[in-house]
């Protein structure tokens, strides 16, 4: 279905082809912050923002069954530091599923700073997967500002596979009664890669739900920073807010820093937070090896098992299976074979 898409982006190396478009996927390409072509039908409009970034609106009441995949990539046609802003509106009572993939196609030192403003209108049901797979010279910052209206549901799953310095800063304002926001993330970092996750979850009104589940596997001298704050305003009774950050440290020099924070001004709330960091479980490895499974394979299975519950949060089964495979090949060290590309996910 994507064959025709390449004709107007001839400069994109062939390696870029997403050869495994998931069933029912509509693709749009963003090159160095610029949307290549609008993708619009009666259900939604995905258009170029003010030169850079995108404006994406799902029309009220529309149930978009297809996954809208936005493939955002940096390449050598513009190696300057770029920053841009996108605006997303999920209309009233709409439902949609969006997949945002970020990539780097040339070995240049890229710096990308992008802001995404998301408004989830009342009763909307939106799922976003952000798959980050960039090379060792990429510094990419996401600043995502989310506002949820009454009974809106928004889930974002970050699957972070590769990148030099990746920062995901998310500010959520639960503005309407009964709104729900789920933020999940799995990050796999090795070498000297760094991931920073910074979350501010503001419960402003009663009866809202939020949960955060971030899990990471850190090898070599990779570092992960997690800072998550849940603020429950005085009026926000019957709030449920949960947060967990767990890290698996494969090497002795990998580091995880967690800063969970709760600020609760209401008195009828259910809130929890937890942060752990641990190593591979020796007993579990021995169990698998005692069945004839090699030490390397046992380690891999244990790492896959560690991030399994985050991957399970991805609703679309095709996408979930695909990302499961990608995580597995990432853990097997099968990435980075191609000089021009650190992706290997296509």
């Amino acid at each position: 279905m994507t064959e025709t898409k390449y004709t107007y982006t001839p400069e994109i190396p062939e390696v870029f082809r997403c050869r495994v478009p998931l069933p029912g996927t509509l693709q749009a390409f963003v090159n160095n912050g610029v949307l290549r072509e609008n993708l619009t039908d009666e259900r939604f409009a995905l258009e170029s923002g003010n030169g850079m970034g995108i404006d994406f609106k799902v029309a009220p009441g529309q149930k978009v069954e297809d996954t809208i995949q936005v493939i955002s990539f940096r390449d050598s046609s513009d190696t300057s530091d770029i920053n841009f802003e996108s605006n997303v509106v999920f209309g009233r009572e709409s439902s949609s599923s969006t997949l945002l993939c970020t990539h780097t196609l040339s070995l240049d030192k890229f710096k990308t700073d992008e802001i995404i403003n998301i408004k989830a209108e009342s009763g909307s049901n939106s799922h976003i997967v952000i798959m980050q797979n960039e090379h060792n010279e990429s510094d990419h910052k996401f600043r995502i500002n989310i506002s949820l209206e009454e009974s809106a549901f928004l889930r974002i799953n970050f699957i972070t596979l590769h990148g030099a310095l990746l920062e995901n800063e998310v500010v959520v304002n639960l503005n309407g009664k009964g709104a729900s926001c789920e933020l999940n993330g799995a990050y796999l970092m090795d070498g000297s890669q760094i991931i920073k996750t910074n979350i501010m979850m503001n419960h402003l009104v009663p009866e809202c739900y939020s949960s955060q589940l971030f899990k990471g596997i850190l090898d070599d001298s990779a570092k992960a920073y997690f800072s998550g704050r849940i603020v429950v305003a005085q009026d926000a009774q019957k709030t449920q807010a949960y947060q967990a950050n767990h890290n698996l440290l494969i090497s002795p020099s990998a580091k995880a820093y967690a800063q969970p924070q709760l600020e609760i001004y209401a008195d009828d709330v259910k809130c929890s937070h937890g942060a752990t960091s641990g190593r591979l479980d020796e007993m579990g490895l021995f169990y698998m090896r005692s069945r004839g499974i090699s030490g390397a394979e046992a380690k891999l299975l244990q790492q896959l098992a560690f991030v399994y519950d985050v991957l399970e949060k991805i609703e679309n089964q095709h996408l979930r299976d695909r990302l499961h495979d990608l995580v597995e090949s990432r853990l097997r060290g099968e990435f980075g074979h191609c000089a021009n590309c650190s992706m290997n996910c296509c």
Binding site: D281, S294, A305
Partner: peptide
């Protein structure tokens, strides 16, 4: 341990390990 298993040794664990996923 894996070589022993491949040679035909099996250990039934007192506390079998859970492997989610």
């Amino acid at each position: 341990p894996e070589e022993r298993a491949r040679e035909g040794l099996f250990l039934g664990f007192q506390y079998p390990v859970e492997i989610p996923g």
